[in-house]
Amino acid sequence: MQINRDMNILVVDDFSTMRRIVKNLLKELGFHKFDEADDGATAWPMVQSGKYDFIVSDWNMPEMTGIDLLRHVRADENLKETPFLLITAEAKRSQILEAAQAGVDGYIVKPFTAATLNGKIHKIFERVAEKQAEKQNG
């Protein structure tokens, strides 16, 4: 499956090192359009602009958590379909289930590898393509 490498990606993490690592890995995978936010609270107005095709976010951030950002996105009629990947150190089963209920598309626990990120992105966009095909056919 062909993934659009020109898509706009928003990387949200309060640690600049982590944002850099995620961006570099995404670059290695061929993506090149990124913006960054250091908290859910700063990310949300950016997301509302409607610019982003994919959001990669941490969970634990001081002002607004990644799970809250996800809930905001899913609750907005115009944004609710935006693919959302959580990359987080939060690994309680209850948290993973909560994220699934909130509508997360992928969940990666830190520390992670480039192969895991690649695999998840492929899986997410395969599902996006399937959904679009279903819509067109339906």
């Binding site: 969970w59 634990n60 951030m61 799970i67 939060e90 690994a91 089963r93 948290q95 993973i96 990666i108």
Partner: peptide
């Protein structure tokens, strides 16, 4: 506190009921 985020589960006590690896997470999802 879980919804706020508790960070890595590094102590023996906090490791209970956690996914130990990405495979665990994938199985659960």
């Amino acid at each position: 506190s879980e919804m706020k985020g508790i960070g890595p589960n590094v102590t023996q006590k906090s490791k209970s009921d956690t996914a130990q690896s990405q495979d665990d997470v994938d199985d659960l999802l």
